[in-house]
Amino acid sequence: MEFETRRQDGILRIDVLSKRIDAACAIQFKDRMRDICADPPPRIVLNLRQVDFLDSSGLGAVVAVKKHLGQERSLELAGLTPKVQKVFQLTRMDSVFVIHGSADEILGGGSHAA
């Protein structure tokens, strides 16, 4: 699983470069996110613009990362595709996460490899 990251103005933007976050890669996603977020700023934006499929294992992995960050750091989501948005709505996780229309609303468009 590949990611691109960018830090700016106290925000860490993480772009997921995979089409799926599912049972086959959920553990890898969670482990890699924990590595990337080992010393993050207080605000993290996870850009899911390229993710077209998220199953319950993938959702669990995203929630686990949020829990891992604790109360002092926020995990916000951005760029949810319609299918992924539907998963967050059906599970009511859209009330748990701050969700932005796009990551570019928060930071500019460019990224630097993690």
Rank of each mutant, 00 (worst) to 15 (best):
M1V: 08
E2L: 15
E4S: 12
T5V: 13
T5C: 13
Q8V: 14
G10F: 13
G10M: 14
I11D: 01
L12Q: 06
R13N: 03
D15C: 07
S18R: 07
S18A: 15
S18E: 15
K19M: 08
I21V: 15
I21F: 05
D22N: 15
A23T: 04
A24T: 10
A24N: 12
C25W: 04
C25I: 12
A26N: 14
A26M: 12
K30M: 14
R32D: 02
M33S: 07
I36F: 10
A38T: 12
A38G: 02
D39E: 12
P41H: 05
R43W: 09
R43N: 10
I44C: 01
V45D: 03
V45M: 03
L46C: 11
R49Q: 11
Q50G: 01
V51A: 03
L54W: 08
D55W: 15
D55H: 13
S57G: 00
G58D: 01
A61D: 01
A61F: 01
V62H: 00
V65M: 03
V65H: 04
V65R: 00
K67S: 11
K67D: 12
H68I: 04
H68R: 04
G70E: 05
E72F: 04
S74Y: 02
L77W: 06
A78K: 06
G79C: 08
K83H: 06
K83I: 03
V84E: 00
Q85E: 15
K86A: 09
Q89R: 05
L90Y: 14
L90C: 11
T91V: 07
T91A: 05
T91G: 06
R92C: 12
F97K: 01
H100E: 05
G101S: 14
D104P: 02
D104C: 11
E105W: 04
L107M: 15
G108T: 15
S111L: 14
H112G: 10
A114C: 11
